[in-house]
Design a protein around this nucleic acid. Structure first.
Lengths: 274, 274
DNA sequence: TCCCATTATTCCGTTGAACGGAACAGCTGC
DNA sequence: GCAGCTGTTCCGTTCAACGGAATAATGGGA
């Protein structure tokens, strides 16, 4: 028992990683890549065989991963990767520019806020509710998603929203209005909470959306090909900085942030092994 | 300490699987899905966090998988899945029809024999060498691959073989001959070792291929869309059963086998979770 | 605002599983 | 046939894993 943390699970996972990275799957190489004595490697491999993740072929052929290893990462989606890489970048952004950021992903017929830099911002605007679902049409996050997602996806979502029981979703009943607003967003390159929502809300007298909101969200998409992986929204108070000025000074950094997230996500999910 | 195998690694892997399958990732659900007492679940989750596979968000938000889980199955390719599902089906086939089967996948500029039902066959023809690489042009396995793979892939492989130092690969120097033979195979629906190889070998006087081989391979592809995942070859002795008769009596079962492998592979790799 | 039900977290004594060095066995190639 | 290498098995030691129970935090409802 020499040095590093004697933790069987970490070692076993190291073995699995080693097998995923290795070329040949002989005991020697596995043990070496996992930095384990061979006797330990054998024991752990036996357990992995027992558990069904690894198959032992023969003495000479060594071991092989089984399809069961897929179950260990099935649930990890691209949207999780985006959020993961986005978090540190978002914190950095907020430390520099003060305003709070939120990132959201689409899930079914609504946007889910997955992270926010509330703790890093000196300006406490919104509380952070993890995994908070918000209607597509009520915030910059959702509007940005709809504006930049592929056409077929946009049609599908809006059609579904129109059939929804929720009052806010039913703003999508006039697809023409929605499409006009989304076209404006696409042309401009970013979504704003206030004006677009106000426009939609006015079509329905008793809307929950309040035209006099003090806080505005400015959102841009994080793309992957033609798909929108997530949208990032910058929240600022109109009493401090007007929308014009916000767009002038903050839009560029916000777009850079989105681009950085795209690049890092790509590296994280498509990168080779080793 | 109650019942089942007290093995930390198996438990930890259960936790990971549970997290991949779960909807919400609160301690309660994770522990329940993994059939663990909560205190154990916490301990294992801590280890997974420590090892970087899981992230703890907050008390209320629970846990989340990190992108690192992908490393646990990166190396598992479709070609591995094919071989895995093929093995029991091949054994069944050989028990029924006596002759030995081999399955091979393409890897770079050669075919790799990944499994053979040598143990199940009463007729000992070939030894089984796991992971044995064989040249593309020297066996039914490789010829079947080349015949049925997409056109762009065929061109690429043949071009590369033509540049190879190996004498057998260099049979691909006359692409026209090769293409003519492959066309024949495609039209017929299966590849044979003997005649095609003899034709190629004759173009090069001192070839390793022996026209008087006693054993013939009859190979069909296992497809996925337009890609060839693997090829399966039936090996029989010409002294016992002629090629005509083999095709008449064994081709149909062989094709059924290939189809079954295709179906099962699809189920294994595309199936939903839970 | 307080209280209660629910859920997460921490503690701790016990125990058996994990550990690796070393001896042994099996295969390969010279 | 022998030498060298690689995988396998054995075994005494030790400490990490274990889970029940006490404790703390949370959130919802009145």
């Amino acid at each position: 028992m020499s040095e590093a943390t004697r933790a069987p699970v970490a070692r076993a996972l190291n073995v699995l990683e080693a097998m995923n990275a290795a070329h040949s799957l002989h005991l020697g190489e596995i043990a070496e890549r996992a930095s384990l004595p061979k006797s330990s490697a054998v024991r752990l491999l036996d357990q992995l065989v027992e558990a069904g993740y690894v198959e032992k072929l023969s003495r000479s052929a060594g071991y092989r991963l089984t399809s069961r290893v897929q179950r260990l990462s099935w649930g990890f989606r691209l949207s999780d990767a985006v959020v993961e890489v986005a978090e540190p970048l978002m914190r950095e952004f907020t430390k520099k520019h003060r305003w709070t950021l939120f990132i959201g992903v689409a899930e079914g017929d609504r946007m889910i806020v997955r992270y926010g830099t509330v703790a890093e911002s000196p300006v406490a605007i919104d509380p952070l509710i993890y995994e908070a679902p918000t209607p597509f049409l009520l915030g910059a996050l959702g509007l940005a998603y709809l504006a930049f997602c592929p056409d077929w996806e946009r049609r599908a979502i809006i059609a579904r929203l129109g059939r929804s029981r929720s009052a806010t979703d039913r703003l999508a009943r006039n697809p023409d209005d929605v499409m006009r607003i989304l076209n404006g967003i696409r042309k401009r390159g970013y979504a704003l909470t206030s004006d677009e929502v106000r426009q939609l809300a006015n079509t329905s007298p008793k809307s929950a959306a309040d035209g006099r909101r003090r806080v505005t969200g400015m959102a841009v998409p994080v793309m992957r090909g033609d798909r929108v992986l997530a949208t990032v929204s910058l929240r600022f108070m109109r009493s401090v900085i007007g929308e014009q000025e916000a767009a002038k000074t903050l839009l560029e950094p916000l777009r850079d942030l989105a681009r950085d997230i795209e690049i890092e996500t790509h590296r994280l999910t498509d990168a080779g092994r080793e």
